[in-house]
Design a protein around this nucleic acid. Structure first.
Lengths: 164, 164
DNA sequence: CAGACCACTTGCATATCGCAAGTAGTCGAA
DNA sequence: TTCGACTACTTGCGATATGCAAGTGGTCTG
């Protein structure tokens, strides 16, 4: 995953940086699940990522400029991870990945709701979501629309429907 | 990479199937480079994929329904690999991957030309390309526009510029 | 009928993955 | 002030994946 320098093809370089089982899962959890610390990412991991793998990926993602790390002012031992602009620009990629997975794998219905909404919303929705992420992670002004709220509401509605 | 069944999230399922260093590189070469046989994929590999890894990925991609395999009628020993519809629907994903890599890694200028064109063309270009792939790989009628020709021409133009 | 070509396979060293357990320090309540 | 929970990890180790180099059995070409 480190710089092997095999080829200058942008698709290949993206895969060298992100082409593994876990990197984008971690980005997804920070992005869509707003998990901001090691503990949250570990405990609330849908896929039960191993602690050493998580530590390694946080290190790599930070080193490669997709995440930043800063101490939590309210707790001397806590660390807050934030997305960088480069990571925020992965939104369309993850949206497409969700859309493809929805069509060509057998996803659970509840967990597909967000992907479906993102797919239907298209670029305008992605841009609104990216604006919101810039607010949450980079200190940009809060936008009017909360896409994460919409996604979460849709997910919870699907959950409620399921349990009925 | 096999079915671990960790979570029904469509992004995760996509990563379980394609989240490794080589799978999408192979798909990319079949898709954009029109490499249709093991030998072509091995010899013309920009990234010098190892022969056993290539064999393994071709097996997996075929097993998971992204490629099909059929004998070459003109050569008893040759095998032709084709993209399935599921693989063709990875076009937008690969386009985004190229676009992201172009912005956030240090790609070579010549190899970025295709990614740039794909990014500028957007969904209409992707759809035209997918139509062409359906012709080349699934036997659909030949569309009027040849996106692969346009991409190839742009690449060769960039190469010529470089060597001047 | 020899030599190149075809699609792989095999052996083996190294790297990575992933489970389970451990570490060193901090915080909050009794 | 002390104890237990919580913080972000690290460590050990077996299992799996990667990747180089060489080999295999068959086919086509001059």
């Amino acid at each position: 995953m480190a710089q092997t320098g095999r080829s200058g093809c942008p698709i290949n370089l993206t895969l060298e940086q992100l082409g593994d089982r876990w990197s984008l899962v971690v980005v997804r959890d920070v992005m869509f699940g707003n998990r901001r610390s090691y503990g949250e990412l570990l405990a609330q991991s849908e896929e039960r990522i191993a602690s050493n793998i998580l530590a390694d990926r946080l290190k790599r993602l930070t080193a490669s400029g997709l995440l930043t790390r800063r101490p939590d002012p309210t707790h001397r031992q806590k660390v807050i991870y934030s997305l960088t602009e480069a990571a925020i620009q992965l939104v369309p990629l993850l949206a497409h990945m969700g859309a493809w997975g929805r069509r060509h794998t057998r996803p659970s219905k509840e967990l597909s709701v967000r992907a479906e909404l993102l797919e239907q919303g298209g670029a305008p929705l992605w841009n609104a979501f990216m604006e919101e992420l810039r607010h949450l992670h980079l200190g940009a002004p809060r936008p009017a629309r909360s896409v994460s709220g919409e996604l979460q509401a849709a997910y919870e509605k699907a959950l409620a429907k399921r349990s009925r």
